[in-house]
Design a protein around this nucleic acid. Structure first.
Length: 313
DNA sequence: CAGCACGTTCGTCACACTCA
DNA sequence: TGAGTGTGACGAACGTGCTG
């Protein structure tokens, strides 16, 4: 592995590399995004890598004192910014710069669409990155594939930050110039059989590891982006449902108010009906009493007349 | 202003899972 | 079945705000 590449990846130097897979218990398949993001699986916690050897014992204060205050990504870019036409340095630039490029941008560079994985499985990408880093002195430098990237570079680099923009532009132009100067014979692509197997067939373990780390780096970025979007989507749903809940609660209150109002009216109605019935009863009684009294009075008036008539006759 | 606590970002590892 | 992917977990590095 070229020293330039190693120098662009400080963290890999500070980490113990142990590819030994421990025995594990198989957890149930959790394939869907929701399941994965919601799971609380600690079964692998105890199986993680061992602690880094050197820097980890120092603590933040000491690290700050010895390493300054720049972001690791900025350091990578600085290391990569060699401003040279040396193919080895260009390859180092390529690895450092592309490792810092957002996956969405990298997709544009290679002209692929939705998934970042496509760019990584693209033989051109592999050639530019890893083969260039390891075969730069050969006459068939894989940097020669870089011109294939050029038609799409403007679209891609337009999205970059100013620093990254200039680095990417410089890399692509340098790679194109180098490729033209060397005028390589195009390497036929072996597309038969297993593409995955073909792409790494002739690589050393270290080369495969570097490729894997790079791909995983990009994949991790993409994964975090997706998770961020997923969480944002959930938060939006929560906000929307809370609003809906508030609206429905308000509607319930309004309906209850109306119901209570109607209840009051019903009570008043019943009371008035009862009052009418009482008044009717009262009226009927009064009328009957009046009749009796009238009859009594009439009888009282008629009786003397009757007696007088009887006496005359 | 140094030191600390806490939060964020990133690279890496491990592992379940998929694919050719 | 080996190679490759997606993602949780973890540590390192760094930023930020607070405090004495």
């Amino acid at each position: 592995m070229p020293q330039e590449l190693q120098s662009t990846n400080q963290q890999s130097q500070t980490t113990t590399v142990e590819e030994v897979k421990p025995t594990t218990t198989v957890t149930p398949s959790k394939n869907k995004l929701e399941q994965k993001f919601n799971k609380n699986d600690d079964t692998s916690k105890s199986l993680k890598r061992t602690a880094p050897i050197d820097v980890s014992s120092q603590g933040d204060a000491k690290r700050k004192a010895t390493q300054g205050s720049k972001k690791s990504s900025e350091k990578q870019i600085e290391n990569a910014n060699l401003k040279t036409t040396d193919p080895t340095a260009i390859a180092a630039n390529a690895a450092a710069i592309l490792s810092s490029v957002p996956s969405s941008v990298a997709q544009n560079v290679v002209g692929q669409s939705t998934e970042s994985t496509k760019i990584l499985s693209n033989p051109q990408f592999d050639d530019v990155l890893t083969a260039a880093a390891n075969s730069v002195n050969s006459m068939n430098s894989p940097i020669a594939v870089a011109p294939n990237l050029i038609p799409n570079q403007q679209t891609a680099i337009n999205d970059l930050s100013p620093t990254l923009h200039s680095n990417m532009e410089e890399f692509l132009n340098s790679a194109a110039a180098t490729a033209q100067a060397q005028a390589p014979t195009p390497q036929p692509q072996d597309n038969s059989g297993n593409k995955r197997a073909v792409s790494t067939r002739n690589l050393t373990n270290d080369e495969r590891r570097q490729r894997r780390l790079l791909r995983n780096r990009v994949a991790a970025k993409e994964c975090r982006r997706k998770k961020k979007a997923y969480v944002a989507d959930l938060e939006e749903k929560v906000t929307r449902l809370e609003d809906e809940n508030n609206r429905l609660n308000k509607e319930i209150d309004e309906l209850n108010t109306k119901l209570n109002l109607n209840g009051m009216k019903l009570e008043e109605n019943a009371r008035l009906h009862k009052e009418i019935e009482e008044l009717k009863t009262k009226l009927s009684t009064t009328q009957q009493d009046a009749k009796k009294e009238t009859r009594s009075k009439i009888n009282d008036e008629i009786e003397p007349v009757k007696q007088e008539l009887n006496a005359k006759s």
